[in-house]
Design a protein around this nucleic acid. Structure first.
Length: 198
DNA sequence: CGGCCGATCAGCT
DNA sequence: GCTGATCGGCCGA
């Protein structure tokens, strides 16, 4: 199965996010085992004007440096003292846009995901139904920050197979509501799989 | 250098 | 629905 390449990623975040729904995120673990899931929810962080983005107003630090890298770079950050979140960097190098992957429908390596997630994930639907849950299930942490999704053997995204899924949109989750930016509909999710927000 | 807070989650009410 | 866990990053003094 091919993987998405740099041309696929060289789109504005608000164009890429809906296209990623239905694609498959594949992770090869350090012992060679594979875990994967189909992307069912994603959010766009659309650049330096986006008040909700880590790169708002051109902010650039060691933490978010990957946002300024080539399209197809992974941006993984640590938050709330205990969780990692995985983003796909897009648009153009130097233009810090990214898509946050928020949920997956698990499709391979479910027992392994369960062992990573622990007893909290009782049902399969709970394994990857949130940005912090899916990084835990797929063992994605800061060590993978900055990797090249178009070439790295540990992590990549495969194109959608079959018809485009029916999509719904909403405001982004967890960004507060202080500015109009926070209310923009920059979250997309599969209508068949609306299982992330509580 | 101190203090605040976060692109979250789980467990309890 | 509410809240505690838990800690790195960031900003202001």
């Amino acid at each position: 199965m091919p993987r998405l390449d740099i041309h696929d990623y060289a789109l504005p975040a608000a164009a890429l996010a809906p296209r990623l729904i239905g694609c498959r995120l594949v992770r090869v673990l350090s012992d060679g085992d594979t875990v994967s899931g189909v992307i069912v929810e994603a959010e766009a962080y659309v650049g330096v004007r986006d008040r909700c983005s880590h790169a708002f107003s051109g902010r650039r630090t060691p933490r978010n440096e990957s946002m300024y890298a080539r399209p197809g770079t992974a941006y993984v950050y640590f938050t709330y003292g205990m969780h990692f979140c995985f983003n796909v960097v897009c648009a153009a190098e130097g233009d810090p846009q990214a898509v946050l992957i928020r949920a997956l429908a698990p499709d391979a390596g479910l027992p392994r995901m369960r062992s990573h997630r622990g007893p909290a994930a009782r049902r399969d639907v709970d394994l990857c139904s949130g940005p912090g849950k899916l990084t835990q299930a797929l063992a994605i942490d800061r060590e993978l920050d900055g990797l090249d999704l178009t070439a790295d053997p540990r992590l990549w995204i495969e194109p959608r197979q079959g018809r485009p899924p029916r999509l719904l949109t909403s405001a982004r989750i967890g960004v507060g509501d202080a500015s109009p930016w926070c209310r923009r509909k920059l979250r997309w999710f599969s209508a068949e799989h609306p299982h992330v927000s509580r």
